[in-house]
Protein backbone atom coordinates (compact mmCIF):
# COMPACT_ATOMS: atom_id res chain seq x y z
CA UNK A 1 0.00 0.00 0.00
CA UNK A 2 1.41 3.34 -0.94
CA UNK A 3 1.78 5.70 1.98
CA UNK A 4 -0.06 8.43 0.12
CA UNK A 5 -3.31 6.48 0.14
CA UNK A 6 -2.94 5.61 3.77
CA UNK A 7 -2.53 9.27 4.55
CA UNK A 8 -5.81 10.02 2.87
CA UNK A 9 -7.68 8.28 5.65
CA UNK A 10 -7.95 10.49 8.73
CA UNK A 11 -5.70 8.97 11.35
CA UNK A 12 -4.60 9.48 14.90
CA UNK A 13 -1.03 8.87 16.06
CA UNK A 14 -1.67 8.61 19.75
CA UNK A 15 -4.03 9.28 22.60
CA UNK A 16 -2.47 10.37 25.88
CA UNK A 17 -3.91 10.94 29.33
CA UNK A 18 -1.50 12.45 31.85
CA UNK A 19 -1.83 13.75 35.38
CA UNK A 20 -0.89 17.28 36.39
CA UNK A 21 2.71 16.21 36.99
CA UNK A 22 3.02 14.85 33.50
CA UNK A 23 2.87 11.25 34.68
CA UNK A 24 1.11 8.68 32.55
CA UNK A 25 -2.38 7.54 33.41
CA UNK A 26 -3.22 5.87 30.14
CA UNK A 27 -1.60 6.10 26.73
CA UNK A 28 -2.10 4.38 23.43
CA UNK A 29 0.20 4.80 20.43
CA UNK A 30 -0.90 3.87 16.93
CA UNK A 31 2.15 5.08 15.02
CA UNK A 32 5.74 3.88 14.69
CA UNK A 33 7.04 7.40 15.16
CA UNK A 34 7.94 6.58 18.74
CA UNK A 35 9.32 3.03 18.63
CA UNK A 36 10.55 2.71 22.20
CA UNK A 37 9.03 3.44 25.56
CA UNK A 38 11.67 6.07 26.23
CA UNK A 39 10.85 7.80 22.94
CA UNK A 40 7.21 7.84 24.01
CA UNK A 41 8.08 9.21 27.43
CA UNK A 42 10.26 11.90 25.89
CA UNK A 43 7.41 12.95 23.63
CA UNK A 44 4.95 13.03 26.53
CA UNK A 45 7.34 15.05 28.65
CA UNK A 46 7.94 17.49 25.81
CA UNK A 47 4.26 17.94 25.11
CA UNK A 48 3.52 18.27 28.80
CA UNK A 49 6.11 20.99 29.45
CA UNK A 50 5.21 22.90 26.31
CA UNK A 51 1.53 23.05 27.18
CA UNK A 52 1.73 23.88 30.87
CA UNK A 53 1.44 27.60 30.42
CA UNK A 54 -1.67 27.37 28.30
CA UNK A 55 -5.21 27.43 29.50
CA UNK A 56 -6.94 24.47 27.91
CA UNK A 57 -9.79 24.21 30.37
CA UNK A 58 -12.72 25.86 28.65
CA UNK A 59 -11.85 25.13 25.05
CA UNK A 60 -9.50 22.58 23.55
CA UNK A 61 -6.12 24.06 22.64
CA UNK A 62 -3.79 23.19 19.80
CA UNK A 63 -0.11 23.35 18.93
CA UNK A 64 2.44 21.87 16.55
CA UNK A 65 5.32 19.90 17.98
CA UNK A 66 7.93 18.13 15.88
CA UNK A 67 5.69 18.14 12.81
CA UNK A 68 2.75 16.74 14.73
CA UNK A 69 -0.45 18.48 15.58
CA UNK A 70 -1.40 18.05 19.21
CA UNK A 71 -4.85 19.00 20.46
CA UNK A 72 -5.37 18.99 24.19
CA UNK A 73 -7.80 19.77 26.94
CA UNK A 74 -7.33 19.85 30.70
CA UNK A 75 -9.74 19.25 33.55
CA UNK A 76 -8.91 19.14 37.26
CA UNK A 77 -5.61 17.26 37.52
CA UNK A 78 -6.07 15.43 34.21
CA UNK A 79 -4.68 16.35 30.81
CA UNK A 80 -6.03 14.83 27.61
CA UNK A 81 -3.94 14.86 24.42
CA UNK A 82 -4.56 13.62 20.89
CA UNK A 83 -1.79 13.70 18.27
CA UNK A 84 -1.96 13.52 14.50
CA UNK A 85 0.29 14.34 11.57
CA UNK A 86 0.69 17.98 10.58
CA UNK A 87 -1.23 17.25 7.39
CA UNK A 88 -4.26 16.08 9.31
CA UNK A 89 -7.44 18.08 9.51
CA UNK A 90 -7.18 19.84 12.87
CA UNK A 91 -10.92 19.65 13.41
CA UNK A 92 -11.00 15.89 12.99
CA UNK A 93 -8.33 15.52 15.65
CA UNK A 94 -10.25 17.88 17.83
CA UNK A 95 -13.40 15.80 17.42
CA UNK A 96 -11.46 12.73 18.58
CA UNK A 97 -10.21 14.63 21.60
CA UNK A 98 -13.71 15.80 22.38
CA UNK A 99 -14.99 12.24 22.05
CA UNK A 100 -12.37 10.98 24.47
CA UNK A 101 -12.85 13.85 26.90
CA UNK A 102 -16.63 13.70 26.94
CA UNK A 103 -16.95 9.94 27.12
CA UNK A 104 -14.56 9.81 30.07
CA UNK A 105 -16.68 12.55 31.63
CA UNK A 106 -19.82 10.50 31.19
CA UNK A 107 -18.19 7.32 32.47
CA UNK A 108 -16.78 8.99 35.57
CA UNK A 109 -20.11 10.72 36.11
CA UNK A 110 -18.66 14.18 35.89
CA UNK A 111 -16.21 13.47 38.66
CA UNK A 112 -13.22 13.65 36.37
CA UNK A 113 -9.96 13.66 38.27
CA UNK A 114 -6.84 11.59 38.62
CA UNK A 115 -8.14 9.53 41.51
CA UNK A 116 -11.31 8.54 39.68
CA UNK A 117 -9.42 7.91 36.48
CA UNK A 118 -6.99 5.52 38.15
CA UNK A 119 -9.77 3.75 39.99
CA UNK A 120 -11.59 3.25 36.71
CA UNK A 121 -8.58 2.65 34.53
CA UNK A 122 -10.27 -0.36 32.93
CA UNK A 123 -13.09 1.82 31.70
CA UNK A 124 -10.70 4.42 30.36
CA UNK A 125 -8.69 1.82 28.47
CA UNK A 126 -11.90 0.40 27.00
CA UNK A 127 -12.91 3.89 26.07
CA UNK A 128 -9.70 4.46 24.08
CA UNK A 129 -10.20 1.05 22.50
CA UNK A 130 -13.66 2.07 21.34
CA UNK A 131 -12.54 5.39 19.87
CA UNK A 132 -9.56 4.33 17.77
CA UNK A 133 -8.62 1.01 16.21
CA UNK A 134 -5.07 0.92 14.88
CA UNK A 135 -5.09 4.66 14.20
CA UNK A 136 -8.45 4.66 12.41
CA UNK A 137 -11.31 6.49 14.01
CA UNK A 138 -13.92 3.97 15.13
CA UNK A 139 -16.45 6.19 16.83
CA UNK A 140 -16.66 9.84 17.86
CA UNK A 141 -20.04 10.05 19.57
CA UNK A 142 -19.25 10.24 23.31
CA UNK A 143 -22.58 8.73 24.31
CA UNK A 144 -22.09 5.72 22.09
CA UNK A 145 -18.51 5.29 23.26
CA UNK A 146 -19.44 5.59 26.92
CA UNK A 147 -22.32 3.20 26.36
CA UNK A 148 -20.05 0.58 24.89
CA UNK A 149 -17.37 0.95 27.54
CA UNK A 150 -19.77 1.21 30.46
CA UNK A 151 -22.14 -1.64 29.75
CA UNK A 152 -19.29 -3.84 30.69
CA UNK A 153 -17.76 -1.94 33.53
CA UNK A 154 -17.92 -3.23 37.00
CA UNK A 155 -19.43 -0.61 39.13
CA UNK A 156 -17.13 -0.44 42.11
CA UNK A 157 -19.49 1.95 43.84
CA UNK A 158 -22.42 -0.47 43.77
CA UNK A 159 -23.91 -1.15 47.17
CA UNK A 160 -22.86 -4.33 48.95
CA UNK A 161 -26.33 -5.87 48.73
CA UNK A 162 -26.00 -6.03 44.97
CA UNK A 163 -22.70 -7.84 45.11
CA UNK A 164 -22.45 -11.56 45.36
CA UNK A 165 -20.95 -12.97 48.50
CA UNK A 166 -17.67 -13.73 46.78
CA UNK A 167 -17.45 -10.24 45.37
CA UNK A 168 -18.19 -8.74 48.75
CA UNK A 169 -15.36 -10.75 50.24
CA UNK A 170 -13.05 -9.72 47.49
CA UNK A 171 -13.95 -6.11 47.91
CA UNK A 172 -13.55 -6.27 51.66
CA UNK A 173 -10.18 -7.95 51.30
CA UNK A 174 -9.12 -5.27 48.93
CA UNK A 175 -10.17 -2.48 51.23
CA UNK A 176 -8.25 -4.13 54.01
CA UNK A 177 -5.05 -4.46 51.96
CA UNK A 178 -5.40 -0.90 50.86
CA UNK A 179 -5.59 0.34 54.40
CA UNK A 180 -2.59 -1.79 55.31
CA UNK A 181 -0.60 -0.39 52.44
CA UNK A 182 -1.27 3.10 53.68
Amino acid sequence: MSPSTLELCPSVKNIILLDSDGKRIAVKYFSDDWPTNSAKETFEKFVFTKTQKTNARTEAEIAIFENNIVVYKFVQDLQFFVTGSDEENELILSSVLQAFFDSVGILLRGNVDKKAALENLDVILLCIDEIIDGGIILETDPNVIAGKAASNSIDSGAPLSEQTLGQAFASAREHLTRSFLK
Binding site: R24, D122, I154, A170
Partner: peptide, 24 residues
Protein backbone atom coordinates in the same frame (compact mmCIF):
# COMPACT_ATOMS: atom_id res chain seq x y z
CA UNK B 1 -11.87 -23.56 38.92
CA UNK B 2 -14.37 -21.10 40.43
CA UNK B 3 -13.66 -17.92 38.50
CA UNK B 4 -14.11 -14.65 40.35
CA UNK B 5 -14.89 -12.37 37.39
CA UNK B 6 -14.46 -9.16 39.32
CA UNK B 7 -11.10 -10.12 40.71
CA UNK B 8 -9.91 -11.37 37.33
CA UNK B 9 -10.89 -8.05 35.75
CA UNK B 10 -8.91 -6.22 38.38
CA UNK B 11 -5.84 -8.32 37.74
CA UNK B 12 -6.11 -7.72 34.01
CA UNK B 13 -6.41 -4.01 34.68
CA UNK B 14 -3.23 -4.21 36.72
CA UNK B 15 -1.46 -6.06 33.92
CA UNK B 16 -2.65 -3.45 31.44
CA UNK B 17 -1.52 -0.73 33.81
CA UNK B 18 1.97 -2.21 33.91
CA UNK B 19 2.13 -2.49 30.13
CA UNK B 20 0.83 1.04 29.83
CA UNK B 21 3.57 2.34 32.10
CA UNK B 22 6.16 0.87 29.75
CA UNK B 23 6.83 -2.32 31.69
CA UNK B 24 7.74 -5.26 29.44
Amino acid sequence: PQLDARRCSQVITKLLYLLNQGET
